[in-house]
Design a binder for these strands. Sequence first.
DNA 1: AATATTTAAGACAAGTATGTCTTAAATATA
DNA 2: TATATTTAAGACATACTTGTCTTAAATATT
Lengths: 150, 150
Amino acid sequence: MLLSKSCVYGLRASLFLASNQNSEYVSIKELSKQLDISFHFLTKILQQLTAVDLLKSLKGPNGGVRLSKPGDEITLLDVVVAIDGDDLFQECVLGLPGCGREKPCPLHNIWAATRGDIREMLETNNLLDMAKKGKEGNLRITAKGDFEWV
Amino acid sequence: MLLSKSCVYGLRASLFLASNQNSEYVSIKELSKQLDISFHFLTKILQQLTAVDLLKSLKGPNGGVRLSKPGDEITLLDVVVAIDGDDLFQECVLGLPGCGREKPCPLHNIWAATRGDIREMLETNNLLDMAKKGKEGNLRITAKGDFEWV
DNA sequence: AATATTTAAGACAAGTATGTCTTAAATATA
DNA sequence: TATATTTAAGACATACTTGTCTTAAATATT
């Protein structure tokens, strides 16, 4: 699996928030219901995004979470790294410590290129574009068939 | 993590065996020692490769495992799919069941391209080439500093 | 045939990721 | 100020991956 489940859930929630252009707070309860993700688990994941200032949170009535900046200023990579870390883009594909240009493994070169492709894919796409694409095309970001963008 | 640890161990062992051009049986004990991988764990992993006929095994004295065909006829993808399955190349990056051209998620197109890159990378490189590269360049396929190709 | 060696198979243990539940802290609203 | 609502934090449970150990089956060698 490329991304952990936590990461996938974080991405889906972030896309949902990005579709909310006016940046109103959305409660995690609402998010968890729309996205069909366990409330408490999602809460913990979004806390990680709040911790690195990708999200802002507000406690109390009408509280919730929202993107901390416009959706086109947050890349998919930002979310992925916040949750899964940058191991995927740093580590050797054979798991060898210290694998790099000076002390490579046999797969280093080919993997470095592919790793770069993955990174670039995530870095050149932002939350707003993806949310727009989803909203306009009426595409799902959850397994449920009855998902609706806000 | 792109590949599971089992998969990485399987790849490393396969590369080691591929460097053994003459296709002699190598005991798993020897492999586990050279590659610094738990003997019993490696045994189980290699059984998976034997099960899909990528390896041949022989019990008893002077027994062990060897590639079932020339190293240039086994791609990295063969080994990866045998151990981790083809989920990585089939599944939606957001984990949505049924995500595909007809019923895509917003990330489907960009992910499908990247997924293809990964697959191509693994498919166009075979064990022999990688083993040769490692042997000729005196590159490691284990964390140990004193690793030696046979 | 007997023995030593080696893979096969499966039970079991440890570690990590995922998911649930309870309590605390903050805040809008009345 | 009191109350209801909501995120924060952490304990706990479950599932899966990784790793260990024991016994069985096969086979080369003597």
